[in-house]
Design a protein around this nucleic acid. Structure first.
Length: 431
RNA sequence: UCCGGCGUAGCUCAAUCGGCAGAGCGGGUGGCUGUUAACCACUAGGUUGUAGGUUCGAGUCCUACCGCCGGAGCCA
């Protein structure tokens, strides 16, 4: 065995003998010659086995290897123009660790249900690698954005005693004889954090028991939620557009190869720079009317409406001042036009839908208490939340960005289920 | 929950008007010293989702159920 290296760093070892540890991705033969595609998690490299250059045992080992068998393979790194990677391994020795029998995912196409049943194995494939590396990059960029702006990470609990959004979409679980709910949003706790630290964010999984079967929905999805004291709606929208610009530009800069693997149109991403267009709800309604939608003013937008609106722009569009009636109880109303909430949504281009929802929060104790009562929510469960309006209440705002929809949009993936390692939907709790 | 679609080999799909259930991939065997989802030859592999019905005859038509896919509503 020679020095063990990662394939991603193979260029540094040209002309030297190295050992790779990994799995067989695919193989081809040509008589006295085997071409082994070996992956180690970082990259895939073609390893060439000439019958005349290796021992009989090693040549037999090459013959015996099946797809996804694990191995150590030793040889000399050589530059080769025919290789997509630019380098090959001229093999001297193969050590089989385990022969994989009947690996279920073949090189040809599969249906989505089959692939999702084998999600734990599907993660090994090229496309899934590209998507999850992009997800990693977006999460990294998101943390970097807030950390660089002096935000403190203050995570919210996952077990909660109360609802943040509609009560019909809560997952209820037994909690030592009483009920707890899986969080739908970390926002309410982030508000408490903002009153403590000024600017905070939380990042974690959230859960919605919505019976949605669409390409934009999961029952478990990850959300990053900043919350800032003394921010009004304008400040909030500006933060959101700078944030999303950063996510896109960081991915474009650091994951170009993965975006190309996914055949993403990079020119569309290059445009995504702040400022973004910002339109009042009423302007959005005008757009819908002009484009032949039978939309009723006063409603919230449906998915087809969002697509029509977002198609008017070459970058995400922020719609603000939604009718208060269709928005959550904690959103502050505009004092000059109280039928509208100081709310905003960011709609991604190309039909990817809403990626951000945010608002300026109601900061008046009596008004918030009234809203809680109007919505039939438990005053007792929200006692702590009301405290924030009792002890030094200030204007504050925040938003939540759904990671999976953002990854789907940036990576150009049709369905959010491929943007998370183990998607949870109404139909799927396995693997 | 509602609307629409699909269930055939391990996988992806064919099967004309209701008339012998087939191909590619994957597996096995053999061949090939530069392949890129390699190729060539041979080969094994089937309770056509389940239950019932119509018919001389059902993968195909009808009913119910189950599973999945897409969409709506709801949302990020």
């Amino acid at each position: 065995m020679a020095q063990v290296v990662r394939i991603s760093e193979i260029a540094k070892f040209e002309g030297r003998e190295v050992t790779l540890q990994g799995w067989l991705y695919n193989k081809r033969s040509s008589g006295k010659l085997w071409f082994l595609l070996v992956r180690d998690g970082s990259e895939i490299i073609q390893c060439v086995v000439f019958k005349n250059d290796v021992s009989a045992e090693t040549f037999q080992a090459a013959e015996k290897l099946t797809q996804e068998s694990s191995l150590r393979i030793t040889g000399t790194v050589s530059a080769d123009k025919r290789s997509p990677l630019g380098f090959e391994l001229q093999v001297r020795e193969i050590e089989i660790i385990q022969i994989a029998i009947d690996y279920p995912i073949s090189k040809k196409e599969h249906g989505i249900d089959f692939l999702m049943d084998h999600r734990h194995l599907w993660l090994r494939s090229r496309k899934q690698h590209a998507i999850l590396r992009i997800r990693h990059q977006i999460i990294h960029a998101a943390r970097e954005f807030f950390d660089d702006r002096d935000f403190i990470l203050v995570d919210s609990p996952i077990f909660t005693p109360n609802a943040a959004e509609g009560t019909t979409t809560l997952f209820e679980t037994d909690y030592f004889g009483s009920s707890a709910y899986l969080t739908q949003s970390g926002q309410l706790y982030a508000e408490a954090g903002a009153m403590a630290f000024g600017r905070v964010y939380c990042f974690g999984p959230t859960f919605r028991a919505e019976k949605s079967k669409t390409r934009r929905h999961l029952t478990e999805f990850w959300m990053i939620e900043p919350e800032v004291a003394f921010f009004d709606l304008q400040d909030d929208m500006q933060l959101a557009e700078e944030f999303v610009s950063h996510l896109v530009q960081s991915t474009l800069k650091n994951r170009q190869k993965e975006l190309e693997t996914l055949e993403r149109d990079l020119t569309k991403l290059a445009n995504i720079k702040a400022p973004f267009p910002k339109i009042h709800y009423r302007e959005a309604v005008e757009i819908l009317k002009k484009n032949g939608s039978n939309f009723m003013e006063g409603d919230d937008f449906g998915a087809p409406d969002e697509t029509i609106i977002s198609e008017q722009f070459d970058r995400p569009v922020i719609v603000h001042h939604y009718p208060a009636a269709v928005k959550a109880f904690y959103m502050k109303r505009d004092s000059r036009q109280p039928e509208y909430a100081l709310a905003m949504d960011m709609l991604a281009p190309e039909g990817y839908g809403e990626i951000i929802g945010g608002s300026q929060r109601e900061d008046d104790y009596d008004t918030l208490l009234k809203r809680i009562r109007e919505n039939g929510l438990s005053e007792e469960a929200f006692r702590w939340y009301l405290d924030l309006r009792k002890y030094g209440s200030v204007p504050h705002s925040g938003f939540g960005l759904g990671i999976e929809r953002t990854v789907a949009w940036i990576a150009g993936i049709n369905h959010v289920r491929e943007t998370i390692p183990y998607p949870r939907t109404m139909q799927r709790l396995y693997p």
